[in-house]
Design a protein around this nucleic acid. Structure first.
Length: 193
DNA sequence: CCCTGATTCGC
DNA sequence: GCGAATCAGG
């Protein structure tokens, strides 16, 4: 493969968007991330700083392209569904890990955390809520050994997906989900009922 | 171990 | 100019 104009443009575009070299390479195909990085340097756009030479470029917002058209919506629909405060911190009905009902959540090997007597740190929960918005929302088949396998939503529903963010090293989940999946086992054991 | 970008250097 | 190998970090 050679660096045709189109390919270079895509490279510039993606690099500008903050995509990683490996992602760009994958997208382009036929090249490795090294090739991409090498090209990036030769093009002089190592980082998104002012490569032009004089003017200092602004930090540039670099929005994460978020085209969102989940549903063709044959009819008007209400796509916006705030959040469901199902995670309470008062009554004891918290259910941080998704509720797999009696369904078997198919996962490569690791199983999603089964809800247990739990009360995850509010921080971790907040983190997860935030992260779920950035989740890549992968389908079962899209999961790999390196994508967070934290299930979100109801398996019996349309909107059910797996986090998909990069996992934390060996773990089956991303950092945020690891945070709620693996509790220090310190907090309290269980509410003395 | 996974990943990131940066650099080098033979081609 | 190209990019694998290597380096340096996270």
């Amino acid at each position: 493969m050679s660096w045709t104009d189109e390919r270079v443009e895509l490279l510039k575009k993606m690099w500008g968007e903050g995509q990683s070299a490996s992602q760009i390479a994958k997208e382009l195909g036929g090249v490795t991330r090294n090739a991409v990085i090498g090209k990036v340097h030769r093009l002089g756009l190592s980082n998104r700083a002012g490569a032009a030479g004089t003017a200092k470029a602004e930090p540039k917002p670099a929005p994460k392209a978020e085209a969102a058209k989940p549903k063709p919506a044959a009819k008007a629909a209400a796509p916006a569904k705030p959040s469901k405060p199902e995670v309470v911190m008062e009554t004891k009905s918290a259910t941080p890990p998704p509720s797999p009902r009696k369904q078997i959540i198919p996962a490569g090997q690791p199983l999603p955390p089964q809800p247990s007597a739990n009360e995850i740190s509010p921080e971790a929960l907040a983190k997860v809520n935030a992260v779920e918005k950035k989740a890549k929302k992968l389908s079962l088949m899209e999961l790999t050994e390196r994508t967070c396998k934290w299930p979100v939503g109801d398996p019996a529903t349309e909107n059910f997906w797996f986090c998909g963010l990069p996992v934390q090293q060996g773990k089956p989940y991303c950092e945020a989900h690891v945070g709620v999946a693996f509790q220090p086992m310190s907090a309290r054991r269980d509410r003395r009922r």
